[in-house]
């Protein structure tokens, strides 16, 4: 990608590139919370950003860019659900709204960037009880299926699912997002 030229009047694409880089990580995480397949995440990311580029004139610059992007992405996810309905997690409008609240709370925590904020989550992961940290590591770090994790930790598949859900809840609590009860 061509680095922005530091002239007195940056071009529209240069401004857009800055906005993309500032908001791309959060958009990706948002898509990952709704989409199962990585290649679909890539496609929806690209499509969202291209639509945003084409409609940049519609963007109200007095408002933050991230929620606008996620609005476009949410619509694309819903369109994909209407077309095929596959490879998606729960993307009911109420869930999309709930996700948006979570993200806004997350973004309001003091940090310079999204990746800096993730550091807090990493600290919380370190605090998880070992058996929960294990299933998170196996599931997300090594991409193992629930049944594979169950064999690895010598537990039933349902127990593993519960353990992962409980771990996620503990992580959410640990983040202590503003507006969320600890």
């Amino acid at each position: 990608m061509t680095p922005p030229k530091h002239g007195p009047h940056p071009s529209a694409s240069e401004v857009f590139e800055i906005l993309v880089r500032q908001n791309g990580d959060m958009l990706t995480a948002f898509l990952r919370s709704l989409v199962k397949r990585s290649d679909l995440v890539d496609d929806l990311f690209q499509e969202t950003m291209l639509i945003a580029w084409r409609r940049l004139d519609d963007y109200d610059r007095s408002r933050p860019f991230g929620p606008w992007l996620r609005g476009i992405a949410g619509n694309l996810v819903l369109a994909h659900r209407r077309q095929s309905g596959r490879d998606l997690l729960n993307c009911d409008p109420a869930i999309l709204e709930g996700l948006e609240k979570c993200i806004r709370n997350f973004e309001s925590t003091p940090a310079d960037s999204f990746r800096d904020r993730l550091q807090q989550l990493r600290l919380c992961m370190d605090k998880l009880p070992e058996r929960m940290r294990d299933v998170i590591d196996l599931g997300y770090g090594r991409g193992m299926l629930v049944r594979e994790i169950a064999i690895a930790v010598d537990a039933g598949a349902e127990a593993v699912k519960k353990r992962i859900q409980r771990a996620r809840q503990l992580l959410m609590d640990c983040l202590q997002l503003p507006g969320e009860a600890p």
Binding site: D25, R32, E97, Y140, R168, M172
Partner: peptide, 18 residues
């Protein structure tokens, strides 16, 4: 509850994949 589960799922997936 579901939204917060998916939110954390999205962050964990991002950390490990992106």
């Amino acid at each position: 509850h579901v939204a917060s589960q998916q939110f954390i799922h999205g962050l964990l997936s991002f950390i490990h994949s992106d």
